[in-house]
């Protein structure tokens, strides 16, 4: 590990170092979302029955579809890195574009879902929600905050992948220098994992 220390600075990108940095950043994300999951589990412990009832108002079909969409996008993202490393830039750009597209579709679904709830008058501090039981208020607040922050991460991911796509097109990301794409991939997979947990906890507890 050490012998490469001198040459790594400024002469060549330290791949292991760059990836380590990204992983450590993801650990902070683990704790960030982890705290929300902690809140979720505490309130679920407190309002078990009401959470079950409230969950019936969510659309399982949309939720399942979104899960499949994100998983597929993750697969494309992973593949795009392999393709860059093999020098197949066109195909890699295609895969990245597919990832972006699926990310956008995910967000559109989310938009539709939120739209339905809001049209039913269910949003934080709405008169309809305040009349409901306390457990339901908390459930929907958790739903909005957690899927909202997750959606924000998807949105950021879409922008970042658009960046790597441009870089790949200009060959700034190439066979020998692809750590930007790889780190973006790590981020995108992490966002996927968050959804893997959000999905059963909100949609499947009816």
């Amino acid at each position: 590990m050490n012998e490469s220390a001198e040459t790594t600075v400024r002469h060549r990108i330290d791949y292991t170092g760059a990836k380590m940095g990204m992983w450590i950043f993801l650990f902070t994300e683990v704790l960030f979302f982890g705290s929300l999951f902690l809140l979720y589990s505490v309130f679920r412990d407190k309002y078990t029955a009401e959470f079950h009832k409230a969950a019936t108002e969510l659309d399982i079909v949309l939720g399942t579809a979104n899960t499949a969409i994100l998983l597929t996008s993750s697969m494309f993202m992973a593949t795009s890195i392999t393709l860059v490393r093999k020098g197949k830039y066109g195909l890699s750009i295609f895969c990245q574009a597919a990832t972006i597209l699926l990310g956008i579709v995910f967000l559109i679904n989310k938009y539709i879902e939120w739209g339905v709830h809001i049209s039913h008058g269910i949003y934080p501090n709405s008169p309809a929600l305040l009349e409901m039981s306390r457990g339901k208020i908390i459930f929907f607040s958790l739903y909005y905050v957690m899927t909202g922050l997750h959606g924000l991460h998807v949105l950021i991911g879409v922008f970042v992948i658009s960046g790597t796509l441009l870089f790949t097109a200009r060959r700034k990301i190439n066979e020998t220098d692809f750590v930007k794409l790889e780190n973006t991939g790590l981020y995108w997979h992490f966002v996927d994992i968050v959804w893997i947990y959000l999905f059963p906890l909100f949609y499947l507890i009816t």
Binding site: M1, N2, A5, E6, T8, V9, I24
Partner: peptide
């Protein structure tokens, strides 16, 4: 957080030979 992230990676990756 950025400072922490930087220091961990620095200590793991940039120690001089023999350090």
């Amino acid at each position: 957080i950025f400072t922490g992230l930087n220091f961990i990676t620095t200590i793991h990756r940039l120690r001089a030979p023999g350090m």
